[in-house]
Amino acid sequence: MTDQDELHRHWRALQRDDDGAVEELYDAAGPKDVPSHVDAAVLAKVHDTLNWWQVRWPVASAAVVVLAVTSMIPLGLNPYDDSKMSRFETAVFSPEWDRALTRQHRAEATRLIEAFLNTALDENEFRKSWRRLTHSGPPIELDEVLMELDLHSDESSRVYRALLSDKGI
């Protein structure tokens, strides 16, 4: 039975008011296939989208890996010596190491103050050494170091005077 015959049969059934005739006429009518140019347009779209993803995603992934690896290299070195990594980066990537460096730095600051107070270390030399120390690592809270040392007020004043004369404190 051809499509035409099928349509005629359902049409006549509809005119007789048979049950389900409307639905059967509907099912027999309409397109029997999707036009090939429509299929082609949809499939081209999906191919283009996947090609974009498949080509660019590995490239993007590789770029991310390279960036991550290169940014991790300085972690093997002292970031404060080569200035390759900021304090923020160190704190983020290696917080334990950052805390250890801070403790070590404060210990050096303590030794430097003690050397200034207890030896013949020149005030200028003390200032220069302090400046080098504070510029080469985590910031040092002078007040906290002085409190830890539990210095006499005269000694604290001497340290302040020496360092305050240097604008870099």
Binding site: D3, Q4, L7, H8, W11, L25, Y26, A29, G30
Partner: peptide
């Protein structure tokens, strides 16, 4: 006068 094309047209 039944004609397939017209049936489709009527249904549409």
């Amino acid at each position: 006068e039944l004609d397939g094309t017209r049936i489709l047209s009527r249904l549409s």
